[in-house]
Amino acid sequence: MIQYLSGVVHPAIFGERKDLLPEPRPDLGVMLTPAMGNRPDLSSTAWAGDNACFSDPEGFTVERFTEWLRSMAPWRATCLFAVAPDIVGDAVATWQRSAPVLPLIRSQGYRAAYVAQDGLEKQSVEWDAFDVLFIGGLTAWKLSHHARELTDEARRRGKPVHMGRVNSKKRLRTGSMWDCTSVDGTFLATAPDHNLLRLVTWLDELNREPSLQLGGAHQNGRAA
């Protein structure tokens, strides 16, 4: 099963819009950041903690992020991971920024996610330093064979893999084909009720009938 973590908090995800979703879904959760200000009941909803260093660079500090993680401790049991800060498109700078924060995330009882960025295939990956591989990077690299090989290696090591910026059926299918365990995106930012129903249909196709959806794709090669 692949889980979709929405960067847009929709009440139906928490069972508050039964006209749209009769029951919460285990394959549908949320991606939260300290900058969002949302504090929904996450007792039975999967979520992940992003640091917002890209979307809110002026507001990001390691201290603010770790304090926010402490405040989210009541819902730690349903948290899939928390993301160490990164630098978009730069694997070397990302490691320098992430390395001190990964143990801080772990020390609070969360799984630490490390964001793979352009050029990571040229580096020695410190696999034991993190618990989840987050496929980031610029779009061309994110969909490259380098990212796919890193995903395969993470799964061989028993580590979950998350893919960021998934806002289409095609990209969601790619994440599923690559054996990612979760993805996130802001697909619900526009026409949220309508697009929620579309997203649920996609998840049903991938999670309930994977052999029908993915078999042909594997025969025809990797999706872009």
Rank of each mutant, 00 (worst) to 15 (best):
D118K: 06
L120F: 09
R25L: 08
R111S: 13
L102M: 07
I13H: 05
I135H: 01
G185E: 01
V125L: 08
A84N: 10
V200L: 02
S44L: 00
S43K: 10
I2R: 00
A223N: 10
L196H: 11
A224S: 06
L172V: 06
T33G: 15
R25S: 07
E149A: 15
M163C: 03
T190I: 13
A129T: 08
E63M: 05
A224T: 09
Q117G: 00
V161I: 02
M177W: 06
H145C: 07
G49M: 15
W202K: 09
G89V: 03
S55A: 15
M31L: 14
R25A: 08
I2Q: 01
L32C: 03
L196P: 03
I87D: 00
A224E: 13
Q96G: 06
G7Q: 13
I105Y: 10
F130Y: 06
G215Y: 01
R208V: 08
F187R: 08
R165K: 00
F14I: 04
R25C: 04
E209S: 14
G109R: 14
S176W: 09
S144W: 01
H162S: 07
P40W: 07
P57M: 04
R111C: 09
R173Y: 13
A113V: 00
P192H: 01
R208A: 13
N38Y: 13
R17C: 10
K159F: 04
E16G: 00
R157Y: 04
A223E: 12
K18M: 07
G137H: 01
G185L: 02
F130N: 07
V166K: 02
R156D: 09
H218V: 09
M163S: 07
G119Q: 05
T94P: 01
G37C: 02
L199F: 01
G158K: 02
E126F: 10
R76G: 12
S71E: 14
A189F: 00
P103Q: 06
D86R: 09
L80R: 14
L69T: 02
A191T: 11
R208Q: 13
C53T: 12
L104G: 12
L80S: 14
L102R: 03
N51P: 11
L206E: 05
G119F: 00
Q213E: 14
S176T: 13
D131T: 10
M177L: 12
A223D: 08
L69Q: 01
E209V: 11
Y114F: 15
G29H: 04
A113C: 04
G119H: 07
Y114N: 08
S182V: 09
A84F: 05
C79Y: 08
V83Q: 10
E67S: 15
Y114E: 09
T139C: 00
S44A: 12
S176F: 09
K170G: 04
A224P: 00
T61Q: 04
K159S: 06
D204G: 11
C180P: 05
K18R: 12
T190S: 12
G215P: 07
Q96R: 14
T94K: 10
T151I: 11
A77C: 11
E121Q: 12
